[in-house]
């Protein structure tokens, strides 16, 4: 048999998301069992609608779980996260190609 090539991450944001979650847990902001419970619940909910293939849908569920957890625990509220996402989007759209993208009023 031939095993599929070892996959790490399909897209850079998945790696960032993974690292962010591990870093939060290591810093003691939530325990890993808390994380797996929350993540398992999201996967179950998504999987009820259609079978997840373990690729992009897996990290979509991961991101949704982390956003909800950070909102619930008051680390990053939904509105705050959405405002920041929009700020990044605006920064990308207003930065000339080839220049480093920075938030307009990053503190």
């Amino acid at each position: 048999m031939t095993a599929p090539a070892p996959s790490r991450f399909d897209e850079p944001w998945q790696a960032q998301l993974f690292a962010l979650t591990v870093a939060l847990s290591e810093a003691g902001h939530f325990s890993w069992p808390d994380w797996t419970q929350a993540f398992g619940a999201t996967l179950k909910r998504h999987g009820a609608a259609r079978a997840l293939d373990g690729g992009a849908d897996y990290y979509a569920a991961w991101l949704e779980t982390l956003e909800a957890l950070l909102d619930t625990r008051g680390f990053a509220g939904r509105d705050e996260a959405e405002t920041m996402r929009a700020a990044w989007e605006a920064a990308y759209l207003s930065t000339p190609h080839g220049s480093p993208v920075r938030l307009r009023n990053a503190g």
């Binding site: 897209e11 850079p12 944001w13 960032q16 998301l17 962010l20 939060l24 990290y59 979509a60 991101l63 982390l66 956003e67 950070l70 680390f75 990053a76 705050e80 996260a81 959405e82 920041m84 996402r85 700020a87 990044w88 989007e89 990308y92 759209l93 207003s94 930065t95 000339p96 190609h97 080839g98 220049s99 993208v101 938030l103 990053a106």
Partner: peptide
């Protein structure tokens, strides 16, 4: 051709970036 602005990352990438910036 000229790119008027930087390539916009995919939606989830922006959401991850937002969380990272805040945290």
């Amino acid at each position: 051709h000229d790119h008027p602005h930087s390539l916009l990352p995919p939606e989830p990438a922006l959401r991850v970036k937002a969380l990272e910036t805040i945290l």
